Simulated assay, not measured.
Amino acid sequence: MINVDFTLFVQIAEALVMTFILYHILIKPVMKAMQQREQHFASLEKETQELLNSASDIIKKYEEELAKARAEGAQKRELLKEEARKVEKEVLSKVLKEVEEYKNKWSQEFNSQLEAIRKDLQGRVEMFAGLIVERVLGRKV
């Protein structure tokens, strides 16, 4: 059984002093270290979240710039294609014009040579007629 005498109060005082000493020597520093650790992890988590948000914003901005650059590239490509078509039409029209001129020149040369040959043959009609008669009849006329 418990005897209520002076030793009980001494043991209660010892327990309170030990609790006070242990609280200040062990529990308080451990709790302080745990709070600091928790605050450190909270700050790291906050910093990590900020970095993730920043990275997300940077990726979004990058994708927007990339889409903008692609759109500009497509627009420039279409402009270049249109310019190429115009140049192609100009070159093709020049070539067709040159071909037409060459054809007309050649046709004129051919016609003039043909006319010269006709005139030459017209001048020799009597000679050819005489040769044909000579060959057909077998005698000279």
Rank of each mutant, 00 (worst) to 15 (best):
L80F: 15
K60V: 06
V10F: 10
M31W: 13
K32I: 09
K32F: 12
E45L: 06
M31G: 02
A33K: 13
H24N: 14
Q39H: 13
E90I: 05
E64M: 04
E82V: 05
T48D: 01
M31Y: 10
M34H: 12
E45D: 08
E65V: 07
L96E: 10
V17M: 01
A13N: 03
R70E: 09
E88V: 11
K103L: 08
A67F: 09
E65P: 09
R37V: 12
A84R: 14
V17S: 04
Q75R: 10
K103M: 03
M31I: 14
I58W: 04
Y102M: 05
G73S: 01
H24I: 00
V99G: 01
L44T: 02
N53L: 01
P29C: 04
A69R: 00
L92E: 08
A13E: 02
A84P: 11
L51W: 00
S43E: 13
L26S: 13
I25H: 11
I21V: 14
L79M: 05
K60M: 01
Q75Y: 08
K89H: 14
S93H: 12
L66P: 04
K76S: 12
K81D: 13
E47T: 03
E45C: 06
Y23I: 10
S56G: 02
F20H: 10
G73N: 00
R77S: 12
I27T: 10
S93R: 08
K61G: 12
E78C: 06
E101I: 00
Q36P: 11
Q36H: 09
R70P: 09
E65L: 02
L22R: 11
Q36C: 15
F20E: 06
A15N: 08
M34D: 06
R77W: 15
K94V: 13
E100S: 04
F9W: 02
E72N: 11
L26G: 11
E65T: 01
E47W: 07
K89E: 14
I21S: 07
L66V: 04
V30P: 06
Y62F: 02
A55G: 07
E63P: 00
A33C: 14
I25F: 13
E65S: 11
H40D: 10
L51P: 02
V87Y: 11
A71D: 14
